[in-house]
């Protein structure tokens, strides 16, 4: 029997899990397409970390829900409206500058989030976060180095990196949308609003070192946490889920 409190926790955990899962799905695209071989290895590593976080969180979400759903049931058998990830992670990222701009913002946010979540009153979330914070610190370091190299590299790379930041920036605000206040009050969830100053400080320092400017753009409307997604999400899920859904009940 799922209580109301469990339902709130289920949704909260799903949000974190789906951010990581969808991000890993986009990162997987780069393996065999990176600008150099070292980067194929690094991006695969980052994608694998994200996928690992997603799997642990999805398994936990299934446990909280208490309906017997596994990590795979949640990843492969939910429809688009049941996914809770932010828009930042779901759009295609086939430009290396975009991939690094997005990873910079996402990993800076994840690092602050997981650092705070490591002292959650929920022991499972605290455990997951304690491990993940070390992984995402590396992701942030990697993205920061690339943003600086590209921003302060050639004239072309400067322009492309600035364009990439401009393209990603409208999707930053959604990361800081409030979550279930009761969960925050209980010390289970981290209040995203509280993370904003620290995340923006980290990102803005990198942007400045990269000789780039922080975009002045209006935030996108968003809606991922409520299950409203961009048109690109349908294609992502169609590709990710089609094989598993084509063989109901099969084990792999």
């Amino acid at each position: 029997m799922t209580t109301l409190a469990d339902a709130g926790l289920f949704t909260y955990v799903l949000g974190l899990a789906d951010d990581a899962l969808v991000s890993a799905q986009r990162m997987g695209w780069w393996i065999s397409r990176a600008p150099q071989l070292e980067e194929d290895v690094a991006l695969a590593n980052i994608g694998l970390d994200q996928l690992g976080q997603a799997r642990t969180l999805l398994a936990y979400a299934g446990q909280v829900e208490g309906a017997g759903r596994s990590e795979d049931d949640l990843a492969y058998l939910r429809d688009e409206r049941e996914f809770r990830n932010v828009w930042l992670v779901e759009r295609a990222q086939t430009d290396f500058g975009v991939a690094m701009a997005r990873l910079l913002v996402f990993s800076a946010w994840q690092r602050e989030l997981y650092a705070a979540l490591a002292s959650s009153s929920d022991a499972t979330l605290a455990g997951v976060a304690g491990k993940a914070v070390k992984e995402v610190a590396y992701h942030l370091d990697h993205a920061s180095h690339w943003v600086v190299r590209l921003g302060d590299g050639t004239e072309e790379s400067h322009a492309r990196m600035q364009a990439a930041l401009d393209a990603e920036w409208p999707y930053v605000a959604e990361l800081f949308e409030p979550v279930d206040a009761a969960l925050v009050a209980e010390g289970v969830a981290v209040d995203p609003v509280a993370l904003k100053p620290a995340v923006l400080t980290v990102v803005e320092e990198v942007v400045a070192e990269a000789t780039l400017t922080v975009p002045q753009v209006a935030p996108a409307v968003g809606g991922g946490r409520r299950g409203l997604h961009t048109e690109e999400m349908g294609y992502l899920l169609a590709e990710m889920q089609h094989l598993a859904r084509s063989h109901p009940g099969a084990a792999w």
Binding site: L21, W29, G52, R55, D72, Y76, E239, L243, A244
Partner: peptide, 15 residues
């Protein structure tokens, strides 16, 4: 990679 039929298989294949 994008179509691996379980998350465990996806992780193994990426690795």
């Amino acid at each position: 990679i994008s179509r691996a039929p379980s998350l465990r298989r996806k992780a193994i294949l990426m690795a």
